[in-house]
Nucleic acid binder design. Structure first.
Length: 571
RNA sequence: GGCCCCAUCGUCUAGAGGCCCAGGACACGGCCCUCUCAAGGCUGAAACACGGGUUCGAAUCCCGUUGGGGCCA
């Protein structure tokens, strides 16, 4: 029996909206650069940066030539050209800050900390990166941020890789190759720190933590932002924590974000933050900048919780003489109470969903639709996601995780899964239940009718269980009304009819049973439910005549007789 | 506390000043189909957080309030 494709053919409908949208709104420069833009002279600053990057490409394992002079600040002009990025329209930007056409060289990364399992929020961030890379034919890089040695473990790393593999988010660069863990990149951080010091862009500070804490508390009491006093700025110390020297010129720090538009931070809110701690360990924000620079990341797509860190990082890029990547801060996934998603809201680990029997494609579909949309379409295959994904369609607001919708999508994907594939996906769950795994061909036939009845593979295997073993008992309430002396008589008649049937298939069984029902003067449902209970032990199953056919004559008769015996036994 | 982000049905979202007394989907209710359970078809209820402004016209732009979230070695 052929199944409708996942999309269930509702094609031209949303083309309306999409098409209309396409007509009414100017094409974005990311998609189609305006011809007029091509001849525009590049801004000197940008050109310089491009030359630097191009002339001295940095390998992931090397530093390359670093230039430490500052980029001149571009003049500020409104970016209201028709091709301007929709999220950046109307903002006042310098040309060097304007959206540039996406080149073929898109490089994105997912950088989890191995301090726990991969949770759905991280998975969605990884997915958006992956989709962006695949959509643009770019490179998806996996980097392990394991500088927090006390909480990072090999087990977590393995679990994260496993979860990503299960989701099908294969990475182009990353483990097991070396150079993609921060602990393997310490020399890089040291080198960059030294260069910053040599250029006078960073300085050492030996202010004791107690003093800084006191100042922090004082600032809080005075209801102002805590900023480092700058006491050690000009002391020329050779040791201590390393701080970035922020030029306090009063100009706001501008973060361009592909989801949030332009976000400005007052310079007065920023201070000379610490790049390297007194004990020599680099801080998170410093590592991220060095890593993203040396890995030549073009688009930083990450969680919203990093937006507040971004101005600091931007200043660090500038101090290093690098142009900043494009940023896209994806909203967080929330629990039903709109609070941060946590275990008390239910499962959050990707692997828990795998174990619950969700197909990876369904998980990917759900995660993609959480905060992203493309017209009215809900069900997407992987290629469709890659084709349609665009950061401009990612929502800026947080999204509540809704398991019910995931379950619906799961069923939709299950319905579109060919029997052979279904058998392969279900086999591990059958084995886990301690049941024998039939050969794939036969199993596929058994499981196919359950696709529209089960939300997960676990449910599916449970419902199909009667194919894999004889019922251990009968559903009590149904047994009380069906497995009676009258039921025993009917089972006898059923056995007699089926025994002599020339062909044992649904097409032959159904008329025989209908005829028997007519002769007995009972409704078909009486016999159907009786047979169903006898053969499956339950009151719900796929169409009973199909079930009998799949079970085969011998097994059917054996189960019918067993039920008859149970009906005769004293209740 | 300071700063930043966010705000359309219960949930995910569409929405780019008039196509909107707001569309789709999940979940929920009803009807149909039916050997059970599903699936499917039809259908119902359900939202622009609040207050100001701008405008002939605001879900949409601006300001504020409220609420939620995040960051602050």
């Amino acid at each position: 029996m052929s199944r409708a494709p996942a999309r269930r053919g509702r094609p031209p409908r949303h083309r309306d909206r999409g098409g209309r949208r396409g007509r009414r709104h100017p094409p974005r420069i990311r998609d189609r650069p305006e011809p007029g833009d091509l001849g525009r002279p590049a801004h000197p600053a940008r050109a310089a940066a491009a030359v630097q990057a191009g002339a001295a490409p940095l390998a992931a394992d090397g530093v390359g030539a670093l230039r430490l002079e500052r980029l001149p600040r571009p003049p500020v002009v409104p970016d209201d050209r028709p091709g301007a990025h929709p999220r950046l329209r109307g903002h006042r930007l310098g040309p060097a800050l304007r959206a540039v056409p996406v080149s073929e060289a898109v490089r994105v990364r997912f950088a989890p900390s191995p301090t726990g399992h991969l949770h759905v929020g991280g998975a969605r961030t990884a997915l958006f990166n992956w989709l962006y890379a695949r959509h643009h034919g770019g490179t998806f890089i996996l980097r392990i941020e394991d500088t927090d040695r006390s909480r990072s473990t090999e087990e977590h790393i393995a679990a994260i890789l496993e979860a990503l593999e299960w989701l099908g988010l294969e990475w182009d660069e990353g483990p097991p190759a070396t150079g993609y863990r921060q602990t393997e990149r310490l020399a890089l951080y040291r080198e960059h720190a030294e260069r910053l010091v040599a250029a006078g862009a960073a300085y050492h500070c030996d202010c004791p933590p107690e003093q800084l804490d006191a100042e922090r508390r004082a600032a809080e009491a005075a209801k102002v932002t805590f900023r480092y006093s700058g006491r050690c700025r000009e002391r020329g110390l050779a040791a201590g924590a390393l701080r970035l020297r922020i030029r306090d010129d009063g100009a706001p720090v501008v973060v361009r974000d592909l989801i949030h538009g332009v976000v400005t931070f007052e310079r007065a809110q920023l201070d000379d933050w610490i790049l390297v701690r007194t004990d020599g360990t680099p801080t998170y924000n410093f590592c991220v900048v060095v890593d993203d620079v040396t890995m030549r990341i073009t688009h930083v797509i990450r969680g919203n919780d990093h937006l507040s860190n971004t101005p600091k990082q931007v200043l660090c890029y500038e101090a290093l003489g690098y142009r900043t990547p494009e940023f896209a801060h994806v909203s967080m996934i929330l629990g039903a109470d709109r609070g941060r998603l946590s275990k008390r809201h239910g499962a959050t680990a990707v692997q828990a969903f795998r174990d619950d029997g969700f197909p990876p494609d369904a998980m990917v579909n759900y995660l993609a639709r959480l905060g992203w949309s493309s017209g009215d379409q809900e069900i997407f295959t992987r290629p469709e996601l890659i084709e349609r994904f665009d950061i401009k369609d990612v929502a800026a607001s947080g999204a509540v995780f809704d398991r019910a919708k995931l379950e619906w999508l799961s069923q939709e994907h299950l319905k579109a899964t060919p029997p052979a594939r279904l058998a392969a996906m279900a086999a591990p769950f059958i084995a886990r239940a301690g049941l024998p795994v039939p050969d794939p061909g036969r199993l596929g036939g058994m499981l196919a009718p359950f696709r529209e009845r089960a939300k997960t593979l676990v449910e599916l295997v449970d419902q199909a269980r009667f194919y894999l073993e004889r019922p251990a008992g009968y559903e009590p309430r149904a047994a009380a009304t069906l497995l009676t002396p009258e039921g025993a008589r009917r089972l006898d008649l059923l056995v007699a009819r089926l025994e002599t049937l020339p062909a044992f298939d649904a097409g032959a069984i159904e008329p025989a049973v209908r005829a028997l029902a007519a002769e007995l003067g009972v409704k078909l449902v009486e016999l159907a439910q009786l047979a169903r209970l006898a053969v499956t032990g339950r009151t719900a199953s796929p169409p009973i005549f199909d079930v009998l056919e799949t079970l085969g004559r011998e097994e059917t008769l054996a189960r019918l007789r067993a039920a008859r015996a149970a009906a005769e036994a004293p209740a």
